[in-house]
């Protein structure tokens, strides 16, 4: 590879400026241009990789979603422009259900995870000894690959030898096939999700808690706040930027829900646990309908981006810019 020589830094002219001419401040334009070009040269390889693995698939997917795509032995054929793929999915009750399911699933799991994660973080913060060990233990579910933890839960929910089934039976709740009925399958999946991701939320919230200076709590104590008021008026407001971050991460992840239903239920029973990602995958790779599949993928991505943007806007308006 050719070694690019770094242009020498030319010092701006010193001494008094000639009368009538403005004093030159900063670097001359030519130098700045050279520096900018050098920057592009350095980042080009990385940009190239990003382009190939990220930008191209995204653009390709958007193009597919807006055209008639046909598949033959010789490969894809991108046909003429159409809104048809979008109007098809928008009218489809399966898509509508998948959207509703994904939204409800995201909202419920994120709220529960946030609640549990905050509780765990508050306990961990007070733990003087063994906090490191507890954090390591807590992170085990989070560090497992989702497909593997999903398989574990599949065993737990197994109708013939799963422990969950036994437990429900022992509690006198009969012997329902957990993953066999709509509501219980959804709840079971939420539990698996919450089990896995609560630690992540707890760690983020703990980091936020540890950023709050101790003397602020002491000031509140002297001011006469009890522990409840301290939490609601001091801890919680100061945690809001952190919580927003956790929510953002979790919403992005939960909205792309795929591996859990893929392993546990394959989107069933019926379409009960078919998320947008599962639906997109099915449409694209099982039905081989690339146009509508791409339309599902693109619209999901768009929804997430718009949703997160709106969330940040609302949040920022509430806490003020300087804190986020």
């Amino acid at each position: 590879m050719a070694v690019t020589s770094i242009p020498p830094v030319t010092a701006p002219p010193t001494g008094p400026a000639p009368p009538g001419e403005p004093l030159i401040v900063g670097r001359p334009d030519a130098f700045r241009r050279r520096l900018a070009r050098l920057g592009w040269e350095f980042t080009a390889p990385a940009l190239f990789v990003v382009g190939i693995v990220t930008i191209f698939p995204i653009v390709f997917s958007v193009v597919m979603s807006l055209t008639h795509v046909t598949l033959s032995v010789s490969g894809f054929h991108i046909g003429s422009f159409t809104w048809g793929n979008y109007s098809l999915i928008l009218k489809s009750s399966t898509w509508q259900y998948a959207l509703g399911f994904t939204v409800v699933y995201t909202v419920i799991t994120v709220i529960v995870e946030l609640f549990l994660g905050t509780c765990i973080a508050l306990v961990l913060e007070r733990l003087v000894r063994g906090r490191g060990v507890m954090m390591a233990l807590l992170l085990i579910p989070w560090s497992l690959i989702t497909v593997i933890s999903a398989e574990l839960w599949a065993y737990i929910y197994d109708p013939s030898f799963g422990i969950a089934d036994r437990l429900l039976h022992g509690l006198g709740l009969g012997s329902p096939t957990i993953l066999g009925s709509n509501v219980s399958a959804i709840i079971a999946m939420m539990i698996a999700d919450i089990w896995k991701t609560t630690p992540f939320v707890a760690i983020i919230v703990l980091a936020g808690l540890m950023m709050i200076p101790q003397d602020v709590y002491e000031a509140a104590e002297v001011d006469g706040a009890n522990s409840w008021t301290t939490f609601w008026r001091i801890t919680f407001p100061l945690l809001r930027p952190t919580i927003a971050l956790a929510v953002l991460f979790r919403v992005l992840q939960a909205f792309n829900l795929f591996d859990l239903p893929y392993v546990l239920t394959s989107g069933g029973p019926g379409h009960a646990t078919t998320s947008l990602a599962i639906l997109g995958h099915q449409v694209m790779f099982t039905d081989l309908s690339f146009g509508p599949g791409a339309a599902i993928a693109t619209s999901t991505a768009l929804l997430v981006v718009v949703g997160c943007f709106m969330f940040l806007r609302v949040f920022r308006a509430q806490v003020g810019k300087e804190e986020l």
């Binding site: 003397d215 602020v216 002491e218 000031a219 809001r240 806490v319 003020g320 804190e323």
Partner: peptide, 11 residues
């Protein structure tokens, strides 16, 4: 009490 680092409520 007045604290060394003021301990103001930032929010």
């Amino acid at each position: 009490m007045v604290f060394q680092n003021y301990a103001l409520y930032p929010h």
